[in-house]
Amino acid sequence: MNIDEVAKHFHITKSKLRYYEKNGVIRKIARDKNDNRLYTKEDLLWIEFFLNLKGTGMSLKDIKHYISLKKGGIETVDERKDILLDHIELIDEKIQELILTKKDLQKQIKKYDDEKGVCIIKCSSDRKN
């Protein structure tokens, strides 16, 4: 795939792909005779994995650390696994926070339905003169 196709596939810009490659988050992509990037299936798998980590809040610094460990080979598997396990814990915490936030929003919606526009949060504009 070329860079246009990859950008479209992952719903990101070409400049983001170039940025990630330049900064070592994505390995150097092979080029054709015209110097256009040619992404392999392996490249696409890594980009998807990276975007999933990034999308769940892992920092670029932590992703780069993970990449450096990956380059270390089999000896770093346990440490890489620990990084992912720790990240799953953070994701689970975020999920619980989102569930609580969703419940608060549902309470507000119910209050709107039951009391026709009354907000659970009182603002100065809600006061009647």
Rank of each mutant, 00 (worst) to 15 (best):
M1S: 13
V6K: 03
H11C: 13
T13K: 01
S15K: 08
L17E: 01
L17Q: 00
R18K: 13
Y19Q: 01
N23R: 15
R27S: 11
R27M: 04
K28M: 03
I29W: 00
A30W: 00
A30M: 06
D32W: 02
N34P: 02
R37H: 02
T40L: 13
K41Y: 11
D43L: 06
I47L: 15
I47R: 12
E48A: 14
F49V: 08
L51Q: 07
L51K: 06
N52Y: 05
K54P: 06
T56G: 08
G57Y: 03
G57Q: 11
M58E: 13
K61F: 10
K61I: 05
L69A: 10
L69H: 04
K71S: 14
E75C: 05
E75K: 12
E75V: 11
D82M: 15
I83P: 10
L84E: 13
H87C: 14
I88W: 02
I91K: 03
E93R: 09
K94V: 11
I95S: 06
I95Y: 11
I95E: 09
Q96H: 04
Q96N: 08
L98C: 05
L98D: 01
T101K: 12
K102R: 15
K102Y: 12
D104R: 15
D114N: 07
E115L: 03
K116I: 03
V118G: 01
V118K: 11
I121M: 10
S124N: 06
N129C: 12
N129H: 13
